[in-house]
């Protein structure tokens, strides 16, 4: 155990590890805040669709050789989020179909474009490492630059501020959109706001757990919290705590034991979900 702690202390000397922890915790905080809203609005799968769109946008940026690929990824993902959430409001089947269509379409085109990326002169292009890291989040969180960290801190501050400033409105839109509309709340505007915020979170979370595993980061903490807590506020608080705990544990375990970062974090989320499910079952039996 002491050996592990010494090793961890040694790894913490690397700025890359410290950056990963900071960004990981910020992404977990943001994703868990919005996760509850998404689960309750039955948009759990939108994270997957948007992350695939972000992957496709990243491929376009790579092919076009754009230095700062965020300039392409962010607007494309935000526009897709707005379109998906708006379509989802009309009919549920169309919404599901739209998410599925955009999700697989963007993934396929993204991978195709990555293979058409410029050759590196000496050999044929080898982008498999980038693709793997982007899809499964194997190590990309451990290769962040200081600029990435600052961007993430600023964007997270904006996401948290937006959530707290519009907390009551988001609460109203989440539970009963028709009632919210009837009481004069501009639900379309708040849905648009939620869509934009989700897109921002997705783009940053892609570095953390990979685009195939982002949904887990959004839905598991919320679902675990919902097993035990009933009020909107308590579910959000619990969801944030679970998300931060799983992210930090998963990240440290991955660094120490050499497991893939993204899947280790998701495994921690799954374990917590089962623990909370058991607690919920025990509590219900106690009530009877």
């Amino acid at each position: 155990m002491t050996e592990k702690i010494d090793k961890l202390m040694e790894y913490l000397q690397f700025p890359a590890v410290r950056y990963a922890i900071i960004v990981g915790l910020l992404i977990s905080l943001c994703s868990s805040l919005l996760g509850v809203t998404l689960v309750m609005k039955r948009f759990s799968f939108i994270g997957d669709g948007l992350s695939h769109v972000a992957f496709g946008a990243m491929a376009i940026a790579t092919v076009l050789n754009v230095t700062d690929n965020m300039l392409i990824i962010m607007p494309v993902t935000v526009v897709s989020a707005v379109l998906l959430l708006r379509t989802g409001q009309n009919t549920r089947i169309k919404g599901d179909a739209a998410v599925a269509m955009i999700s697989v379409g963007a993934l396929a085109l993204g991978y195709l474009l990555m293979n058409l990326a410029p050759k590196n002169g000496r050999t044929s292009a080898n982008l498999s490492a980038d693709v793997c890291s982007t899809l499964f989040g194997s190590t990309s969180i451990l290769t962040l630059s200081q600029k990435d960290v600052i961007t993430c801190v600023v964007m997270s501050a904006i996401v948290v501020a937006v959530f707290f400033f519009f907390y009551t409105k988001i609460f109203a839109v989440t539970f009963d959109e028709s009632f919210a509309k009837a009481t004069g709340i501009r639900s379309d505007l708040y849905n648009l706001l939620i869509a934009v915020v989700i897109a921002v979170i997705i783009v940053f979370a892609m570095n953390f757990v990979g685009s195939l595993l982002i949904s887990a980061l959004i839905i598991f903490p919320a679902l675990s919290a919902m097993r035990v807590f009933k009020s909107f506020r308590s579910v959000i608080v619990c969801s944030v705590i679970i998300s931060l705990f799983c992210a930090s544990m998963g990240l440290l375990l991955a660094i120490l034991e050499g497991t893939p970062v993204g899947s280790t974090i998701v495994a921690a989320d799954i374990a917590v979900f089962f623990i909370f499910s058991i607690i919920s079952m025990v509590a219900r039996r106690g009530e009877k």
Binding site: T139, L142, G258, P260
Partner: peptide
Amino acid sequence: MSSTMIYSTVSNMILY
């Protein structure tokens, strides 16, 4: 180092 740290350190060497 652990395999995750090795891979990320090599990535960082290539990136920076």
